[in-house]
Design a protein around this nucleic acid. Structure first.
Length: 472
RNA sequence: GCGGGUGUCGUAUAACGGCUAUUAUCCCAGUUUUCCAAACUGGUGACCGGGGUUCGAUUCCCCGCACCCGCACCA
């Protein structure tokens, strides 16, 4: 089979209402994506599958849903305020971007060797800022001249800086807060709440799904890297001397997850991240990568975060993060295994894995071979001919029945029957049910399979059972 | 963010400093059709945005926005 091209998937996603560019009618906004009717359903199905596998089907997991806006101290304690802000300079000669604080010689470009060509250092902060309280919309205000004079601060370079927040009458808020760049901290900040209310036995995990925001310099590759994205994260709290076995267990769980997404095993790869590439908090990290059309890229990460976060919170808040085992053994601060999943990256992998081209009766066919439990539409119901009232009436009965039994069922009487099958194939509908003249005679319908294009005839009373049997 | 390129119906495209902006497909309505994109009729739908040059700009120029490629970035 020919290699899948990302453009084909982007095009299909747009054509059929899965994914649109954010703010498209106004020319778009880089790094944002909107989900249409089918994309929303597909994304929900992926997130629900995750929640079921990792929370509901286990007895050692609970969920939280923390606020996106968090106290500044969260990001100071976590290290994000320091590590997310890098002073960068640019070489005027070769345009290399370099960390100003890591230059051996602040005058010489290590990339091209030129001297004295650096720009002024600029701060690049990956966190989105916003402000608590109303902010100034309009700076042309009438204010007493004396108030400004008092705030004038003549700097040595001849520039003037004014702290406008200290001038009465200017409604400027300086209470900066960040949109969370990861959901993990919302779990750590609630660790104590969960322990105090439920007191679960260690090991236990706290799971969360939700939006995170990163001010990427250059969002690219469809939904792979965007400025607003959705994470599904677990912080799994363990006794420090058991982290390795817990880590190994999560490696296995992650593979099960990939399998449930329908990702081919040979396209999922483990990358042991070497120490110098790991995040500041991590003692061990495995990146799970997927062979996307854009190359082998990170699908999700599994990190051993030690007690880095809980210790930081303990220091910054003064509150104890100690866990006291019920058997009376010595208290400890739990260590953490963190499987961190990106929803969009999973969704993109699912689309890439599902995108299939084949031939039916000599015609090229494009379809999404989605696992039935992920498909946004489970079953489409059609009358064989839409201008025969008796077929339409009967098909409506079947539609109502299946709608009740299978949920995401679609009515389709567009064009002719072959066209409908192709339309449904393209959005990944696993089965089409067709009402024909034989239905009128003996109450049987055909179920046509997306993957094989073959049909089987079943009695209407058996229909729901048969579909359930096939994974609907 | 830097350098280069691109921007025309949902998708894929054609042409043009000047008449109602082309074609295919998709989509919508109808005729027809007894199971895999048949045919026919009709219909909706686009020059990325803002300035400038010009009698007149989708076309030329400038700025912005978006996308693509390369670099850098991705704790």
């Amino acid at each position: 089979m020919a290699e899948v091209k990302l453009d084909d998937i982007v095009s299909l996603a747009k054509r059929r209402g899965f994914i649109f560019q954010g703010s498209e009618v106004y020319g778009g906004l880089a790094g944002t994506w909107d989900y249409g009717p089918l994309g929303t359903q597909l994304k929900r199905n992926i997130m629900q599958l995750w929640w079921r596998m990792f929370v509901e089907d286990r007895d050692d997991m609970v969920g939280v849903d923390a606020a996106i806006l968090m106290n500044q101290k969260v990001w100071q304690a976590s290290g994000h305020v320091d590590t997310f802000t890098d002073p960068l300079v640019e070489c005027g000669n070769c345009h290399a971007r370099l960390r100003a604080d890591k230059l051996a010689d602040p005058n010489t470009c290590p990339a091209c060797g030129k001297q004295g060509t650096f720009s002024e250092p600029r701060q690049f902060n990956m966190m989105f800022e916003t402000k608590i309280g109303p902010t100034a919309q309009e700076v042309h205000l009438r204010i007493p001249a004396e108030a400004i004079k008092q705030q004038l601060d003549l700097a040595e370079d001849g520039m003037v800086s004014i702290d406008v927040s200290r001038i009465p009458g200017i409604p400027v808020s300086t209470d900066v807060v960040y949109l969370r760049p990861e959901t993990a901290q919302g779990i750590f900040t609630n660790y104590k709440n969960v322990v105090d209310t439920l007191y679960p036995d260690v090991p236990f995990g706290i799971a969360q799904q939700g939006k995170a925001f990163r001010n990427e310099i250059s969002p690219r590759d469809f939904i792979f890297r965007s400025r607003e994205f959705e994470q599904m994260e677990i912080e799994y709290f363990v006794n420090p001397d058991q982290w390795e076995s817990a880590f190994q267990d999560w490696v296995q769980r992650v593979h099960e997850w990939c399998e449930a997404l329908g990702l081919p095993e040979d396209k999922v790869h483990e990358l042991e991240v070497p120490e110098n590439d790991r995040a500041h908090y991590s003692k061990r990290t495995i990146d799970f990568e997927y062979d996307y059309p854009i190359g082998r890229e990170e699908l999700l990460g599994l990190a051993y975060r030690t007690d880095f976060d809980l210790q930081n919170i303990e220091k910054a808040s003064g509150k104890s993060m100690q866990y006291r085992p019920k058997d009376g053994s010595a208290p400890f601060v739990p260590h953490v295994i963190e499987p961190s999943f990106g929803v969009e990256r999973a969704l993109m992998a699912v689309l890439c894995a599902a995108y299939t081209e084949d031939e039916v009766h000599g015609e090229k066919r494009v379809y999404l071979k989605l696992p039935p439990h992920l498909a946004p539409v489970k079953v489409a119901v059609s009358p064989l001919l839409k201008n025969k009232p008796e077929l339409v009436a009967k098909a409506n009965e079947v539609f109502a029945l299946l709608k009740h039994e299978c949920g995401a069922v679609l009515w389709d009487d567009n064009g002719n029957i072959g066209k409908r099958y192709r339309r449904q194939d393209e959005i990944g509908t696993p089965f089409c049910v067709t009402v024909d003249f034989e239905t009128i005679e003996n109450n049987s319908v055909t179920i046509r399979s997306r993957d094989t294009t073959e049909q089987q005839r079943v009695a209407i009373e058996e229909l729901a059972t048969e579909l359930h049997k096939q994974g609907i």
